[in-house]
């Protein structure tokens, strides 16, 4: 008995912002006492509350492993993924959770991400080629070297969690600002050797609410859970645009089709794939 008591997990207080439209006139904070065994993530704590204390508590989550990007919340003073942060690592016996700032609240911890996705769509987040025929009826793959991959791969890690726009002080006062996520994605494609769409994206990027609204507060890069470093992407894009305006950049030419792989012999050390079982 005494042993089990000694092993009993510590308790932490989860203080969660609640807002139920039509019921609450304004948001309120509600406290829950949650047992915190080793390894408990903030998301685990919320699930425990929902199962044991209060089924009305709402938030978004899915993968529980920092991949889907749906569980970003404002946790103890920073926008973070609930599933990727352990309670023990927050070094506090009080976990204060609010919905991501700068997005309207749908209910409790659920932010309205629609304007965020609209901004993402506005910068045309796909490879743009002059030769549409090849895109519609592909005959091969566009060539890309390992070095060319490194130019953009870090920016392609974005999971669209929206944390960066919550941290950005420019977003706080300018609704129309494209924001770190969309701008970083614009650069992700422009920096891609296979893309030819810089000119097509220019209007959005150069608009009064585009890249030059960024004054490098750096908070987006600080909170990004995937190491995307959106602030870096935006500055690289500004550099590119400056060079382009000064005539220092050549016209963008997307890479050619890679020659088909011929006479390919699998390496000996790779085990053979199992036979089809169906």
């Amino acid at each position: 008995m005494s042993e089990s008591h000694a092993n009993a997990p510590q308790k932490v207080i989860f203080e969660v912002l609640r807002y139920i439209p039509g019921v609450d006139a304004k948001p309120r904070m509600q406290s829950y006492e949650v047992p915190a065994p080793k390894g408990l993530t903030v998301l685990d704590g919320l699930l425990w509350i929902k199962e044991n204390l209060d089924p009305t508590l709402s938030w978004r989550s899915s993968c529980r492993m920092g991949v889907c990007g749906s569980c970003a919340m404002f946790i103890n003073g920073l926008p973070r993924l609930a599933c990727a942060n352990q309670v023990a690592h927050l070094h506090s016996d009080k976990i204060i959770i609010k919905p991501l700032p700068n997005y309207a609240i749908i209910r409790d911890l659920v932010p309205d991400l629609e304007p965020f996705f609209a901004k993402h769509a506005a910068i045309k987040p796909f490879l743009i080629r002059k030769n549409i025929e090849e895109l519609d009826n592909p005959t091969g793959e566009f060539f890309q070297s390992k070095e060319e991959l490194v130019n953009y791969i870090q920016f392609a890690y974005c999971i669209k969690c929206g944390a960066c726009l919550s941290a950005c002080p420019t977003v706080a006062t300018d609704d129309a600002y494209l924001g770190p996520q969309a701008l970083a994605q614009a650069w992700r494609y422009i920096a891609d050797a296979r893309d030819e769409g810089a000119a097509e994206r220019e209007e959005e990027i150069f608009s009064a609410h585009g890249a030059f609204r960024c004054h490098f507060a750096g908070a987006c890069s600080e909170v990004c859970p995937k190491g995307v470093d959106p602030a870096f992407a935006i500055q690289l894009m500004k550099q590119f645009m400056f060079k382009k305006k000064l005539g220092g950049c050549k016209e963008q030419h997307g890479s050619e089709l890679a020659p088909p792989v011929e006479n390919w012999v699998p390496k000996k050390e790779y085990p053979k794939a199992p036979e089809h079982s169906l």
Partner: peptide
């Protein structure tokens, strides 16, 4: 019918 949660100048 979503509640505004914009930081505004406080965000600076």
């Amino acid at each position: 019918n979503h509640l505004s949660n914009k930081l505004g100048i406080w965000g600076w």
